[in-house]
Nucleic acid binder design. Structure first.
Lengths: 130, 130
DNA sequence: TCTTGAGCTTCCAGTGACTGGAAGCCCTAT
DNA sequence: ATAGGGCTTCCAGTCACTGGAAGCTCAAGA
């Protein structure tokens, strides 16, 4: 398979696939003409990466997970640990965003949003005491 | 004021303040020795930036908001528009993270996390049909 | 006075995970 | 023979910093 077909079937753009090769996540062979020659296993790996990335795992986590996937002697506890750590990080991000959301939505509600210059959003950012 | 004091009082690290100068967000004067010489208004601006960044506004949004803050002819609707757009973006991010969280927490729960290699997390990433 | 150390300066490089673009080779069809 | 689309590599840019190196300045102590 050439890169175009793999991109289509895995849902990962060619640029990204080349990048993944650069950083050693996939190692496609080469045809005589210099084109990358992907096997089914490469496609499978890329689809794996696509799903892991969609769950927000970092590239390093993905490298780790791929390694575990290919290691028949893995312990599921290792996988679970990676996933749990990531889950915690996601929870923290959500909490942080919700805090922002709270503050911001209060500010938005308190702003008239008309033609006058007076604006509680700016006042808050400027640090004016209520 | 030198950069160290401004950093302390604004809560923004010196490196970041220099960066903000680089990209034109603040324009401190210079002392004879080449040191940056910040006035109270500069400090005020930096505190403004710190609060805006803490609410997740992008640097470009911050530049915009600072401009509006200093424009006596602004309309509060302009400020509100920036804030609302950002609020929408935050909501989208939260929704995306919550979707990830859902999937991931299901997977984590379904994984035994013991010494055996069998792992539903990896099976899911590998695309195995349930 | 000399030295020491903290604080300041600039410039360069790296982060994460791509993404865009340029220059140029390869393959197929007309 | 040529046109086009797909492939190649390499370089640069994104966002918002952050670390580090080399070197200047300043205030305090021996």
């Amino acid at each position: 398979m050439n890169i175009g077909e793999v991109a289509e079937r895995s849902g990962i753009p060619p640029k990204t696939i080349r990048y993944y090769e650069d950083i050693g996540l996939v190692r496609p062979q080469r045809s005589g003409n210099g084109y990358r020659a992907f096997r089914e296993t490469d496609l499978h790996k890329l689809a794996f990466l696509g799903r892991a990335r969609a769950l927000g795992f970092s590239i390093e986590d993905c490298r780790n997970l791929l390694g575990l996937y290919e290691d028949e002697n893995r312990e599921s506890a290792q996988v679970k640990a990676v996933a749990e750590e990531h889950l915690t990080a996601i929870d923290e991000k959500i909490a942080q965003l919700q805090t922002m959301r709270e503050t911001l939505s209060h500010l938005v509600k308190s702003c008239h949003g008309d033609a006058r210059p007076n604006c509680p959003i700016l006042s808050d950012l400027a640090g004016d005491k209520s």
